[in-house]
Design a protein around this nucleic acid. Sequence first.
DNA 1: AATCCTATATATAACAA
DNA 2: TTTGTTATATATAGGAT
Lengths: 197, 197
Amino acid sequence: MGRNKIVMKKIEDPTSRKQFYSNRKDSIVKKSNELAVVCGTDVALLMFSPAGQVTTYSSKESVEDIMIEAMNKSVNPRPIPNLNEQLLMQSLKQSKSEGQMVGKIAIAEAHEKKLNELKETIREAQQKIRYCNPQVENISSVQEAEAYEQFIRSNMEQIQQSKAKLLGVQGFVHRNEYPAVNTEDTAAAGTSSGWTF
Amino acid sequence: MGRNKIVMKKIEDPTSRKQFYSNRKDSIVKKSNELAVVCGTDVALLMFSPAGQVTTYSSKESVEDIMIEAMNKSVNPRPIPNLNEQLLMQSLKQSKSEGQMVGKIAIAEAHEKKLNELKETIREAQQKIRYCNPQVENISSVQEAEAYEQFIRSNMEQIQQSKAKLLGVQGFVHRNEYPAVNTEDTAAAGTSSGWTF
DNA sequence: AATCCTATATATAACAA
DNA sequence: TTTGTTATATATAGGAT
């Protein structure tokens, strides 16, 4: 939408990229909320800004809770399905309508071409995923499992630490400052617009 | 978009609701992907259909990993911000432009009216949140920490299971079947559209 | 249920102030 | 930087098939 079509490629100019993110972020949150309200279902959304700031949306419970809910639903081989079949579908549909404008022969050609492009894209994506993220179902050696185990363990430690820290704080609710918490939230303060109704 | 405006209220007719979900789901996934690609950032999305089926999208890693990333970023008072300030902003903007079409006096009136409506909506939403989700700021962090801890623990179990399985299998690499694994993945097959490239 | 069509509603890219 | 405007691109609701 807008004067020009969007190109599915990373914007290199940092300013434009930031601008783009700002706009799209809001509208995705808006649409997610519409979906949740109108369908009466749960939706959770997590986005990082180009600067690394996190924005989240969740229909009612916390993002974590919705995720746990999802985890419980899929107690199967692959924890949570990931691949973008939806996008494929979408792209195929699009290629279809574009093709119709050109003629029957063009359709076939366009389809084949796009399909091949898609195949390649998917292939690359899958490789990338495998490389960056050793999924549980793909683990083939004990070493890998142990590496991942260790990773999770460190995560667990972090969580427990922050939990402990929080629990420690609970007894001193009246304090204005937390005892020894990293108060590096000044940077994050920009997210909330400070609404005071 | 479409012949009529959307009303921000749950659709009661199950068929329409399902239809609505289908359409919107795809486009939200599409937009999320656009954001991730064009900005080169991570996005994770989790949605439940009216029937309870989970749909997820994640830019590269798994949804879980993106969440972990987000958790690490916000090791602060409130783990992950939740409230929909974005939506407020959005709605306010909208009310503003609509008002301009009517004239200066109308603007003021429209603004005030919408603002009041919004205030009310927010008030209700906040109550709802408090009621459904009694996580007062201080306590909430601990609860979330625990929820997350649980989540990680289940991950850990999965890893350890697969590790154990691997240890058991390594001596019998030539077997085609694992000793006694639950092969209950037939149920999950419905989620993926079964693409076979 | 899926697909196509069409009128509208929305979203937004490029500018402008 | 933010906000407003405008021209276009997209997304869809409701029908038709």
